[in-house]
Amino acid sequence: MLKKNLDQLKLLIVIGILILVGQKVGFMVVDKEFSVAAALPGTILIIVVCLLSLMIKECLPNLKFPAFAWATMIGLILSMPFMPTAKAFLAYTNEVNFLSTTTPILAFAGISVGNKVQELKSMSWKIVLISLLVFTSTFFGSAIIAQIVLKLQGII
């Protein structure tokens, strides 16, 4: 294994720990049972898939397909109904709560934009207003078309 991959693995393990701690606390708050031991195999499986997606991305630099998308793709393939891996993979990874994986990401994300606050202050209020309209119209533009097509297809 390359040194880079080893470094990535170390960091992914830290992220795994952050997820498990977050899930423990989050479940405690709502009085739900959570055993770290039961979630450990799922966490390890997830970390292995993450590392794999980083390696695939590295091997195919011209494809411009982000590691995040590879991770989703591998997770998807392993859990399709007709795959022999589906039952076990889902049983283990379901022990890891979806929302618990999101909290560390956003904590890092918040910190990572910290040095852009000054730049942002120098930007005018106009760009804020425009951006908010950009976000809203991107969201509803897609939602309206999806609504029409799903209706035509009879799915909703």
Partner: peptide, 30 residues
């Protein structure tokens, strides 16, 4: 770290799409 921390979430999303793959393909045009 954001980039790396997103990966476990990516896997979780995969496990949400996988079992529903038939439904997702049906909604392909949308």
């Amino acid at each position: 770290m954001v980039m790396l921390a997103l990966l476990p979430l990516g896997v979780k999303y995969g496990t949400l799409v996988g079992p529903n793959i038939v439904k997702v393909v049906q909604a392909g045009p949308a």
